[in-house]
């Protein structure tokens, strides 16, 4: 037991302000088997990434009936795939009541992608000492100082080859690999992925949905490249820029490969 210096009283805990980047599942309608199938597909694209992540259900684009919103089934299905639903965002009063009934936290709606996330992100019914900012698209704004004052999220830098069976993950910013990413290896980032060596494995950029994220590599030999969930596998990549230095970006929901020397 420790005395807190400030108060001089013995306390069990202290509340701190925390800001966490999270993944939001934007639900359009709910049908159990289709939901599970889609979830499975998403997980297959990036198996390691989804393990034990917290997830919020975003109801802003929900078009189904409120009565079809079975949060217990949603939570259960996600749990079976090691994903933890912690709350809902948006939705009408009925939907939010259902969510509350399933012990989910209620986060205020923010329908705009580039919404100002400096607005209080916590429902008044929650503790007012802590704040949880659900900002799945945070990396997308690209304007420094917009999300957090001061330091940008530092890139994760790896100087060794990423070997088969290994996974390297940058949950908030960019990922920079100063060596090769080998076949059977996987690199993931909330922001951009840079590989200053051959990219032979899988590279996933913008894994929280940042569509402006890009993948850069010295030699494109990848098994899979994904940006914000849009992906191409090796055989679809081979026609263009294969084994050369390229960047890959998302344009109109399509992955576009361009040689690096042509900017």
């Amino acid at each position: 037991m420790t005395d807190t210096a400030a108060s001089g009283v013995t306390q069990c805990f202290q509340l701190k302000s925390a800001s966490v980047s999270m993944t939001a599942l934007e639900l359009y309608f709910f049908e159990e088997s289709e939901f599970e199938q889609t979830l499975r597909d998403k997980i297959n694209q990036a198996p390691g990434f989804f393990k034990d992540i917290p997830l919020i259900i975003s109801l802003e684009k929900y078009e189904g009936l409120s009565s079809e919103l079975d949060f217990f089934k949603i939570i259960g299905t996600c749990r079976r795939h090691n994903i933890h639903v912690i709350g809902v965002r948006g939705g009408n009063d009925d939907q939010r009541r259902l969510a509350r009934g399933a012990a989910l936290a209620l986060l205020p709606g923010g329908s705009q992608r580039d919404r100002d996330i400096s607005e209080p992100a916590v429902d008044a019914t929650d503790s007012n000492a802590s704040s949880v900012a659900a900002a799945p698209n945070k990396a997308q704004t690209g304007s420094p100082g917009h999300t957090e004052p001061g330091e940008p999220v530092p890139a994760r830098i790896v100087s060794q080859p990423v070997r088969s069976g290994q996974q390297v993950y940058a949950p908030e910013g960019d990922l920079i690999i100063l060596a090769s990413v080998q076949a059977g290896a996987e690199v993931l980032a909330a922001g951009n992925v840079h590989v200053y060596g051959p990219l032979r494995g899988r590279a996933l950029a913008g894994i929280h949905g940042a569509e402006h994220a890009r993948v850069f590599c010295q030699s494109l030999e990848a098994e899979l490249v994904s940006i914000a969930g849009h992906y191409k596998i090796s055989e679809d990549l081979q026609d263009n820029g294969w084994k050369t230095a390229v960047q890959i970006q998302l344009k109109d929901d399509l992955l576009v490969v361009t040689p690096l020397d042509k900017g």
């Binding site: 060794q160 080859p161 990423v162 070997r163 088969s164 069976g165 080998q182 076949a183 059977g184």
Partner: peptide
Amino acid sequence: VRDSDRILGILQS
């Protein structure tokens, strides 16, 4: 070669 790559990853970690 792929197996060896895996072993190298394990040596590193």
